[in-house]
């Protein structure tokens, strides 16, 4: 599809057809003969509310794809647009706002701050963004309820099971109605049944709450919860179940 990319920042309330768009994106690390091409000429359009998984062998560029969406990396060539805006072209202030307000991250582990309670962990991004503690608490309770954690929320993270901790991390990633959730092997440290529960939750957030989810995984089992799977090999998109679906 064609889409006019502007450097104008589209606020959270806007719901563009393509929430995430890669156009001819190449990302190279390093210079000269030792440089590594992590992504090569990637084209990818992810509509708002879609749940997409990225699969491929280690080192194929899966995580780089997420980092580009989150403006943690900038492309060497091509355009990564989020909400219709070219991320690399945004003023730094807007890039930071995008990372803080619109995009949530969940990783395999080390997601939560151990000295804060579950609720405080979820409140943190909002408080850092200037919300009052009372408003942050209300939003945190709502986000925790969405992920199925509705009691004992004032206990420390290590008093919860691994699966519950990952749910708390997801609550923190979506609190304040963030539109995009980037998940890098979020089930890596979990057993099959617990991992299924976490990915099912991501699917529900996408289906029922319109959150756009981009998840990296190497497990076919977890990938099968998604609307669509993109396969990478040596930085190239080699296939996409969305093409045939």
């Amino acid at each position: 599809m064609t889409m006019t990319t502007t450097h104008e920042y589209v606020p959270s309330s806007g719901t563009p057809a393509a929430m995430i768009e890669f156009r001819a994106v190449t990302k190279t690390f390093g210079d000269g003969p030792s440089s590594v091409r992590a992504l090569v000429d990637v084209d990818l359009v992810i509509p708002a509310g879609e749940f997409v998984t990225v699969m491929g062998p280690s080192g194929c560029g899966k995580s780089t794809l997420l980092h580009l969406v989150g403006a943690i990396e900038v492309p060497t060539a091509g355009v990564v647009a989020v909400g219709g805006a070219d991320v690399a072209g945004l003023p730094l202030e807007d890039q930071a706002r995008l990372r803080r307000v619109d995009i949530g991250y969940v990783f395999q582990s080390l997601n939560l701050i151990p000295s804060l309670s579950a609720a405080e962990n979820v409140m943190l991004p909002l408080e850092l963004d200037g919300e009052t503690p009372r408003a942050a608490r209300t939003a945190a309770e709502a986000a925790l309820a969405q992920v199925g954690i509705d009691h004992e929320i004032d206990r420390a993270p290590d008093e919860f099971s691994g699966g519950q901790r990952q749910r708390i991390a997801i609550a923190r990633a979506i609190v304040g109605d963030r539109r995009i959730l980037l998940a890098d092997e979020p089930t890596g440290a979990l057993d099959t049944a617990t991992g299924d529960g976490v990915v099912e939750l991501l699917a529900r957030l996408s289906n029922e709450h319109g959150v756009t989810v981009l998840m990296v995984t190497h497990e076919p089992r977890f990938s099968s919860w998604a609307d669509r799977t993109v396969f990478l090999r040596d930085g190239v998109v080699v296939d996409d179940t969305g093409d045939s679906a």
């Binding site: 099968s224 396969f231 090999r233 080699v238 296939d239």
Partner: peptide, 14 residues
């Protein structure tokens, strides 16, 4: 690649 994509779609349907 082709078989894997088709099988992934099948797994999703199941």
């Amino acid at each position: 690649t082709h078989q894997r994509t088709a099988l992934t779609a099948l797994l999703r349907d199941r």
